[in-house]
């Protein structure tokens, strides 16, 4: 749990008297490559806190949890836990309906596979992701976001690449 404390301390340090964007994201994950041949589409959820450096740029910390199941209704499951640093740049931050942006993130991924009562040793690997976003206002101070990410877990011998369809909701808070 060492990394949780480190991230929490970093977030606390960053969050003093600044504008913070809190975001919750979910998504559908599609494995890219042979590693996902016996898995179904995955689901993902994440929480992020980002410092609004200026209206266009924000950067922060967060984590996401992803789960894949067997493609044949079997008992296999693969989970990723990803503490990460994330940054986003938006072209029209004033746009109520259309505010396109790009996001990128890097961090660590803990990947764990289990099947039929067994579990392979978990692996901690660096990962990166890059994505496109369509950000829009939901009213009441909330903003919505849809987009797609391409991410890669840089594991030994072979990477775990994933395409993600992303949906999110966020709110800016002045601390």
């Amino acid at each position: 749990m060492k990394w949780v404390m480190i991230l929490a301390c970093s977030a606390a340090a960053v969050c003093s008297a600044i504008d913070i964007d809190f975001a919750a994201e979910t998504g559908l994950l599609y494995p890219s490559g042979q590693w996902g041949k016996s898995l179904n589409t995955g689901v993902d959820a994440g929480l992020f806190a980002s410092w609004i450096v200026n209206p266009s740029f924000k950067a922060g910390l967060g984590f996401s949890l992803s789960v894949f199941g067997s493609s044949d209704q079997g008992a296999a499951s693969l989970t990723f836990l990803k503490p990460q640093l994330k940054a986003g740049y938006y072209l029209r931050p004033w746009g109520k309906v259309f505010n396109p942006g790009v996001v990128c993130a890097f961090g660590l991924s803990r990947s764990s596979l289990s099947n039929s009562g067994g579990t392979d040793p978990a692996t901690w690997d660096p990962f990166w992701k890059i994505g496109l976003r369509w950000n829009f206002s939901l009213g009441g101070g909330f903003r919505g976001e849809v987009g797609g990410d391409y991410s890669s877990i840089m594991a030994k011998t072979e990477n775990g690449d994933v395409f993600t369809l992303r949906f999110g909701i966020s709110r800016e808070v002045e601390l």
């Binding site: 060492k2 990394w3 480190i6 991230l7 970093s10 340090a13 490559g33 042979q34 590693w35 996902g36 041949k37 016996s38 898995l39 910390l61 693969l78 503490p83 640093l85 890097f106 961090g107 660590l108 990947s111 596979l113 392979d120 040793p121 978990a122 692996t123 901690w124 690997d125 660096p126 877990i153 594991a155 030994k156 011998t157 072979e158 990477n159 775990g160």
Partner: peptide, 26 residues
């Protein structure tokens, strides 16, 4: 700061790495 921390963590947890995705794809 967090970027350096993550890099350090990557190095520290390097011993916990294994070719999981290679095995899954094989």
């Amino acid at each position: 700061v967090p970027a350096i921390l993550i890099l350090i963590l990557t190095a520290v947890t390097g011993c916990g790495r294994n070719p999981l995705f290679f095995r899954m794809g094989a």
